[in-house]
């Protein structure tokens, strides 16, 4: 698994590539939490477009970050992947608790719309 982080206007974009599973979930947790704290970001955009594999532990790690964001009034947005990874997110109910987009561009545009609305 590879992670890339880009702070943008008080928000954090994290791009995940590869397998988010039992053996990478702990790294995912600690790095994302570290970046959120370091950048004092309230909202998180997780780009999962290039995630090739996810299991229940990976899904748990995503929902765990969501719970942390909710405690501080933050939001989670997801750029969804394809195939079984997408099916797992759906069974896990992620579409009920996070805003799901088909591209990073669409997700960032929605952030912009929020700001203009506020």
């Amino acid at each position: 698994m590879e992670l890339e982080c880009e702070p943008r206007g008080g928000r954090l974009i994290v791009r995940v590539t590869g397998d988010l599973d039992l053996s990478s979930a702990a790294t995912f947790r600690s790095r994302v939490d570290g970046w959120l704290a370091d950048t004092a970001s309230r909202d998180l955009l997780l780009n999962l477009r290039h995630v090739s594999f996810i299991d229940s532990v990976g899904l748990g790690a995503i929902l765990g970050r969501l719970r942390g964001l909710q405690r501080t009034g933050g939001h989670l947005a997801i750029v969804e992947p394809e195939g079984a990874v997408k099916a797992i997110l759906k069974i896990g109910g992620i579409d009920k608790v996070a805003a799901v987009y088909t591209s990073e561009r669409a997700a960032v545009a929605a952030w912009g719309a929020d700001e203009r609305g506020a």
Partner: peptide, 16 residues
């Protein structure tokens, strides 16, 4: 005891 373990492993085995 880890709050991030969802208990969905068997559900995925069943579904897939």
């Amino acid at each position: 005891s880890d709050p991030e373990h969802l208990g969905l492993g068997f559900t995925f085995m069943e579904q897939f």
